[in-house]
């Protein structure tokens, strides 16, 4: 999944638009999504879906799959808000209920409203994050972070983590394939044993890889800081998306203020 998201970020139709603009747009929608009323949060979520699926060309199946993650967490955690257990007492906050001995288990109307708000808000805010994830390639994101003065330690850690994820994923895939080719997963028992071998070997190989990369860094003159020059990439100068973003955002902001 990670590889697919990363590959799409490098291939999507918005990749050649300035990353700064996309990040500012996502950040502004993030804050607006936090304070906007429920129906406007739904509008923001839908609008972002248009940006991601229609403008960026991300397959809708993948986007829907990604959205199930915040929805799953939202639904499972909102159970506590929706279902209440109280001693039987007169209350108007009951949609339906059931008396069990001295207790009354019921679905709370207020709880449903709170859960709905929490789910929609998390969906809106996660959508802004997905917009960045799916339309801004990692190298551009890192470039902007450096440009905006993000501490060197953080960008360097991100930089190395990103590189290592690929190396580890590739090593794991190779080992799993090699094990499958030698019938490593014929039954549950052998499967578990094979998996344990992968885990232990992965640690060993990670250390080995780390050692080799350290040597390669030294060989190329590493002196304690991973400095690079990102080049002069020429971004698309079209104003169509910029205008739509500005106009849409202004409308949403005005609507939010009016609703308050």
């Amino acid at each position: 999944m990670h590889h697919r998201i990363d590959a799409l970020a490098y291939r999507n139709k918005l990749k050649d638009y300035p990353p700064q603009q996309k990040l500012i747009f996502a950040l502004m929608l993030f804050f607006l999504g936090y304070i906007a009323p429920l129906h406007l949060q739904m509008v923001i979520t839908l609008w972002l879906a248009v940006w991601i699926v229609v403008y960026a060309g991300i397959p809708w199946q993948l986007y829907a799959q990604l959205l199930t993650v915040p929805m799953f967490f939202g639904f499972t955690s909102s159970l506590a808000l929706v279902v209440n257990i109280n001693p039987p007492s007169p209350t108007e906050d009951v949609l339906m209920g059931l008396g069990i001995g001295p207790l009354f288990v019921y679905v709370s109307l207020q709880g449903i409203s709170q859960a709905l708000q929490a789910i929609v808000r998390s969906l809106t805010i996660t959508s802004t994050m997905y917009f960045v994830l799916l339309t801004v390639p990692f190298a551009q994101l890192l470039g902007v972070m450096r440009q905006w003065g993000c501490p060197f330690l953080i960008t360097e850690l991100l930089f190395l983590t990103y590189r290592f994820i690929f190396i580890l994923a590739e090593t794991t895939t190779e080992m799993l394939t090699a094990q499958r080719a030698r019938l490593g997963y014929t039954n549950w028992r052998r499967g578990l044993y094979s998996l344990s071998l992968v885990v232990s070997q992965l640690l060993h190989r990670t250390i080995e890889n780390y050692r080799e990369i350290s040597l390669a860094l030294l060989s190329r003159g590493y002196h304690g800081q991973l400095e690079v020059w990102s080049g002069i990439k020429r971004y698309h100068r079209g104003k169509r998306y910029l205008l739509e973003a500005l106009a849409g955002y202004t409308l949403l902001l005005v609507a939010t203020v009016a609703c308050r």
Binding site: F138, A139, L142, F159, Y162, R163, N209, E212, I213, L215, A216, L217, S219, R220, G221, L226, E227, V228, W229, S230, G231
Partner: peptide
């Protein structure tokens, strides 16, 4: 094990930096 940066240009510039 030798390529450390995210893009080709960045990797080329690493030693020069």
């Amino acid at each position: 094990q030798q390529l450390v940066a995210t893009t080709v240009v960045e990797d080329l510039s690493y030693g020069l930096c």
